[in-house]
Design a protein around this nucleic acid. Structure first.
Lengths: 165, 165
DNA sequence: ACTTACGAAACATTATAAGTTACATAAAAA
DNA sequence: TTTTTATGTAACTTATAATGTTTCGTAAGT
């Protein structure tokens, strides 16, 4: 038989019912990599993982891990030893947000998931179809918009015509 | 000094560089609750957490936890003891996907996050603004679409005019 | 040779939905 | 009244993926 420790402050009800924002650990690799790539364009010499890590407030291993992905896609190259580091391989104008997003092979864009889709229940299927329709449409929109923005636009502070909304 | 055990199969490189889909634990509460609400409409007597749990392939506590949120919003009520359980309080036609989505107070819709937004770096700000613009537009789309679908439409297998696309 | 920097493995941390166990409480039935 | 049924809730566990960290190997330049 288990022994439970009970605290005075109610915990779960707070977390479940109270209207506060949840803060899931998000995938910030896209944001980070875009930031890095634009910076790289502004300097002539290679950027070391150490320097990039300081810029991103993280550590060099995390930087290498993510940059390695972009390397396989040909967006950056790396050099070892003195004077080594990361170098941009393409002009910013030829890299879109979509390119980097796809390179990072992030999983689903959404935190919302469907229930088991192999279920035979027609109601569940209708529910899943309805949600999925919407999410797929939204994803298409995101990918399209990402494809329209190239990194040179970010470099000059230009964020697109819909910026102000 | 730490001692490391090295295995034969390379692990990290596989996970980081190989193009396989990631499968994060998603928030399936929306899908589950919609499923439940439509089912509830099709039966006259209250549904117990136990029955619902079997339908959703989970357990009663998870059901109560999520249903409790919908209860605070007036979509369902609960009764204790014999003949108790959960009862639908509104006609399906008056409940939209958006209503339930908002009730669940899910955090950000997206798995993509921005890097620290208080940073002064104009490049980072431009990057974040560009990503955020797109995500906000996509979120507006999702909320709008969710608002257009009511649960009675799901009950009859109707998933909206954009279904086939 | 020495230093620098990437490459990579192994492990730790974090955050959140989901899952689970335990017990209290209320309501209907026996 | 006692028993059974069912919700209410706390506390704890698990699963998952990005992130963080330590350590060692390796290549390249000084």
């Amino acid at each position: 038989m288990k022994h439970y420790l009970f605290h005075e402050n109610s915990a779960y009800t707070m977390q479940t019912l109270m209207p506060h924002q949840k803060k899931m650990r998000k995938d910030s690799r896209l944001s980070r990599m875009l930031h890095v790539l634009v910076h790289m364009h502004h300097q002539q010499h290679p950027a070391t993982s150490e320097q990039i890590a300081q810029m991103l407030h993280t550590n060099p291993v995390v930087v290498r891990r993510t940059m390695a992905i972009l390397k396989t896609q040909g967006y950056v190259s790396s050099g070892k030893g003195h004077g080594g580091g990361w170098t941009l391989c393409k002009p910013l104008a030829e890299i879109s947000l979509l390119d980097i997003h796809k390179s990072l092979k992030e999983g689903s864009l959404f935190t919302i998931g469907l229930t088991d889709e192999h279920n035979q229940c027609p109601i569940e299927q209708a529910v899943n179809a309805a949600i999925d329709d919407v999410l797929q449409e939204a994803e298409r929109l995101v990918l399209q918009r990402f494809g329209e923005v190239t990194l040179d636009q970010l470099a000059s502070g230009f964020t697109g015509p819909a910026s102000g909304d």
